[in-house]
Design a protein around this nucleic acid. Sequence first.
DNA 1: TTTTGAGTTGTTCGA
DNA 2: GTCGAACAACTCAAA
Length: 487
Amino acid sequence: MSDPPAAAATLVWFQRDLRLEDNPALHAAWVRGRPVLPVYVLEDADAGAWSPGGASRWWLHGALEALEQALRTRGSRLILGRGPAGARIDAWLAHSGADAVYWNRRYEPWARERDERITAALQRRGIEVRCFDAGLLCEPGSLLTGSGAPYRVFTPFWKALRARTHIGPGLPAPPRLPPLSAPPDGDSLESWSLRPRRPDWASGLRSNWRPGETGAQARLREFAGSTLDGYATTRDQPGVAGTSRLSPHLHFGELSSRQVWHEIERHADRRAGSGWPPGIERYLTELGWREFSYHLLYHYPKLPEAALRPEFARFPWNPDAVATTAWQQGRTGYPIVDAGMRELWSTGWMHNRVRMIVASFLVKDLLQHWRVGAEWFWDTLVDADLASNSASWQWVAGCGADAAPYFRVFNPTLQGMRFDPQGHYVRRWIPELARLPDAVVHAPWTARPVDLTVSGVRLGVDYPLPIVDHAHARARALAAFAHIARG
DNA sequence: TTTTGAGTTGTTCGA
DNA sequence: GTCGAACAACTCAAA
């Protein structure tokens, strides 16, 4: 047995783990004590239909820039290359003489297949491969019901996860990463053109977000230190900054869910035997839904394409490009729906409560296929995530796991009045309605002509009339569900 | 095997 | 104005 040459380096392949803290692959490479070659591969083609959308690409640029900067402070640097990943890694290995490749797993079906191929090919050549679980509290596939089946209901899944999973503290960031003496050349980040040029639609993204590990940690501390207390109720009010806004940071792995868990737990005022305060319990449950989505994607790799409930194959969808465009552009005539869609387009994000409302509207009021909505979200959300996006759209449509019952059709007017009673949210995103009285701001078609005039609103001119009548649309949706129930 | 209780986020109608 | 029931029945998970 002879040791490998002293210079043989460890290649660390960054993917959805764009952080230095609590990064198992990076940590293991550092512990190994050899030079470290950190790399990132842009895999547009490998992901097929689910290659990153526009908003994701914008975020990725910022996240990679931040990671590169963080690595430089540790004496290292990030090498960029375009996929396919296997070929790119081979080239880097040949250039650097590295004899080990470490990475943190991804769980998308295409990525799992790819990992198997790459692992087998590398191992055949005697390269050491180590894969780690870094992004979730619990490795997908590891929790099963008593009879050995995957959980299909959230509550028992979450109980099992909490009972059986120890969530340990995160790993420290390596203080210094020994670089290669002659690292390979890589692409320049600019050359990937991840950010929009003409037109530059990203100004709203820039003013709302700070991609990268430092920004993520700041957001987490801010949330845990203040917003968390009232989270159980303010989380539902889109006019209030009551949610964590951590989703894009978690998606890109600028934070691990384990780090989030521990920071939240630190703020728990746990009285003897009384359990968590409601805000904390509620927030941790949201992390639980993220876990559940990944668990579903793992066991049902077709989740992004096909309804979990087979009877939905005969659901009478009513494809309508005009209605879909009105929804996308925030011109449905229902203020809470339009405000949400405009917030999404402007900032790359939408409040959770409003996501449910706009999704219910597209699927049930407009009878558009849930995949139409999933694809739009995929392109426009900075937190677009295959597991969460697919599972959540199926949930709203009623064809997913633990899905909303058929009769749960959100009434956009009622939802607006209940969760945005003063209309702060609607006024912010639909300035043409800003001067309407509270009582009608969620239903401008019910306003008295004098109120419309005084508020400077000409319905059908400044702001559209409703493109469907909700009562009628609801009845139509219930009939459609009855149709597939009868079989 | 059979049984039992439960299942994220709603709305509407009628008393 | 408030409140409870109905809305299809089904499937899941565990005892």
